[in-house]
């Protein structure tokens, strides 16, 4: 129990550092990376909180969060690469 509490506090500290980076970040890529790691930290916090309150079923919701996190990051990266979400993507010479 104490282990889970300590780990939760550690994850909170990590979240704080990531938020600082997202707010200060000089480039947009810093913010994207900070957003992704905050999503991961939220998943960790969710799992730890589930074990802390002795309901490990929260792990399923953590998996869902991971999927959503990937969707958001993919959309952002696709927007960067093509400037358009409806771009077919795939094979294309990287002229930009």
């Amino acid at each position: 129990m104490t282990v889970f509490a300590a780990a939760s506090i550690a994850v909170l500290v990590a979240l704080f550092l990531a938020v600082v980076r997202a707010l200060k970040g000089p480039t947009v890529f810093d913010r994207v990376l900070a957003g992704n790691s905050i999503g991961t930290g939220a998943i960790m916090l969710l799992a730890l909180f589930g074990f802390l309150t002795e309901r490990p079923e929260f792990l399923d919701i953590g998996i869902l969060y991971a999927l959503l996190n990937i969707i958001g990051t993919l959309a952002v990266l696709k927007f960067f690469r093509h400037g358009d979400l409806s771009h077919p993507g795939g094979e294309e010479p990287s002229e930009n």
């Binding site: 947009v28 900070a34 996190n69 958001g72």
Partner: peptide, 14 residues
């Protein structure tokens, strides 16, 4: 950047 921060806000809210 505001869009990215909005996503972060939603994760913290969750």
């Amino acid at each position: 950047a505001v869009v990215v921060l909005g996503g972060i806000y939603s994760f913290l809210m969750a």
